[in-house]
Computed example of a mutant assay.
Amino acid sequence: MSANRTKAWILAACMVAVAGFSALGKPGTQAAMDTRARVPLEDIFPSQVGDWRLDPAAAVFVRPAVDQARRFQMYDQVLERTYINGQGQRLMLSVAYGRQQSVGLQMHRPEVCYQAGGFQVQDVRPETIQVLGQPFPVTRLQAHMDGRPEPITYWRLLGDGVVTDDSSFKLQQLSLGLRGRVLDGLLVRVSSIDRDTDGAHRRQARFADELARAMSPVQRQRAFGVAPAGSPRP
């Protein structure tokens, strides 16, 4: 067999393999995706989290998550809230849900979005916080613009698993797709306007723990995913 014919057969085999993987990698049934997508983010994230309650001054500007998502073409729901505690401290919660996280439609990382919005982004790093007494992986960063210092803590889910970097995100996309899983995604961001970055991050970590405690097991699995072993987080 000539070298050209050999190359042709290899190319054909690769094309067949790619087509096969594409078929296997399609999301689960439309019905399954519709079921998850129909659950409003408002029903997952409680309005009271420990001592934190919705800020009444900001609540009047909050729109339903489905309506809010119309501002963002890549999401199906976007929930934006401001919480205030008894000491008058405020935290901002932003949650974005996309029902199908394809290779070309990934949950945008805050370090990318903030920089695109004119912020200076610094100290992006993976961290582990305690949620219900268990280690939970998050990403922390600091954003600045015009005297507005904003420490940020966030985490991303693909399906039911937390992903901490883009490489893991893409690998899990492929793995879940090959198993016929629904490739939806959730990004949860907690931030505050605060010059004390370390103090703000500690407060955000406590808020995440209190958020998990305020949720039902079903809500908690949707917001925090499952542990690496495959069981729901406590």
Rank of each mutant, 00 (worst) to 15 (best):
Q87D: 15
G86T: 12
G133L: 08
Y75S: 03
Q122I: 05
G88F: 05
P135K: 13
R71C: 05
R125V: 07
A65N: 06
T82H: 13
V39Y: 11
P46H: 00
L93M: 15
V78S: 03
G104Q: 00
T82N: 11
P126R: 15
Q130E: 12
Q100C: 05
A116R: 10
Q89T: 05
Y83M: 00
G117W: 04
D76K: 11
V39K: 07
Q100P: 08
V131E: 04
T128L: 02
L54S: 00
V49N: 13
G50Q: 09
A59C: 06
F61C: 02
F119H: 05
S102M: 02
C113S: 03
V131M: 01
F119R: 03
A37Y: 01
V95D: 13
V131H: 03
V131N: 08
G88P: 09
A57P: 03
V131S: 13
P135Y: 04
V121I: 07
L79K: 05
G118Y: 00
Q122H: 06
M74R: 13
Q101A: 13
V49A: 02
Q106M: 12
M74K: 14
I84M: 06
R125M: 15
R38H: 05
E127N: 07
V121H: 06
R38D: 15
V103T: 14
S102F: 05
R38M: 15
Q87L: 13
Y75W: 04
Q101W: 12
Q115A: 12
S94N: 12
R125W: 09
V49F: 01
D51Y: 08
Y114T: 13
R99N: 14
V62A: 01
D67I: 04
Y75I: 02
N85M: 09
